[in-house]
């Protein structure tokens, strides 16, 4: 019953902001490892790593969101996410904890949250004075070219 009224999220740090992603989509969290670059792949595509004998793509979440990519530290992790049969990794600055967030404290995202385009976001949760930005895992990989176009437009307008 309670699960209907709250969501379990993996909370991680990205560019000094706190983000959360639905735990259901997270397969595992691994330490940084050597990433093989793919020539000709998009900029946010960091490369591929091996996982359970297969290879999966890894994206730099910062760059995916159009933020400046931080330094890799000993705290950096790769969160392995599975969405619709696609498994991929996303690099985050640090993974903090798993939280249960009451649905009541989740609010729709404000038009602009932490510089991240809202289409990636599911909502924002305010929990004991902490602001957690909840990602929509379905939209991390596939949004549309539109997204990129908007980004481009913005840059041109600067």
């Amino acid at each position: 019953m309670s699960s209907q009224n709250e969501e379990q999220v993996v909370v991680f740090q990205l560019n000094d902001q706190t983000y959360g992603i639905d735990i259901v989509s997270v397969r595992e969290i691994i330490r940084m490892e050597e990433i093989t670059k793919i020539p000709g792949a998009p900029d946010f595509m960091e490369g591929i790593i091996k996982l359970r004998g297969g290879v999966i793509p890894v994206i730099d979440l910062c760059r995916r969101f159009g933020l400046i990519s931080g330094e890799r530290t000993s705290q950096s992790r790769i969160i392995i996410v599975q969405v619709n049969n696609t498994t991929f990794g996303m690099i985050v600055d640090a993974v903090q904890e798993v939280l249960r967030i009451p649905s009541s404290s989740i609010e729709p995202p404000p038009p602009m949250a932490g510089g991240v385009n809202v289409s990636y976001l599911k909502g924002v949760a305010l929990l004991e004075e902490r602001l957690i930005i909840l990602l929509d895992h379905n939209k991390i990989l596939y949004d549309s070219e539109q997204e990129e176009l908007q980004q481009l437009e913005k840059e041109l307008n600067k």
Binding site: I38, G40, M45, V55, P57, T87
Partner: peptide, 13 residues
């Protein structure tokens, strides 16, 4: 190993 659906066909690889 396949590069996976997401990357699809990368030219030259």
């Amino acid at each position: 190993k396949s590069l996976g659906e997401y990357l699809g066909e990368v030219p030259g690889l």
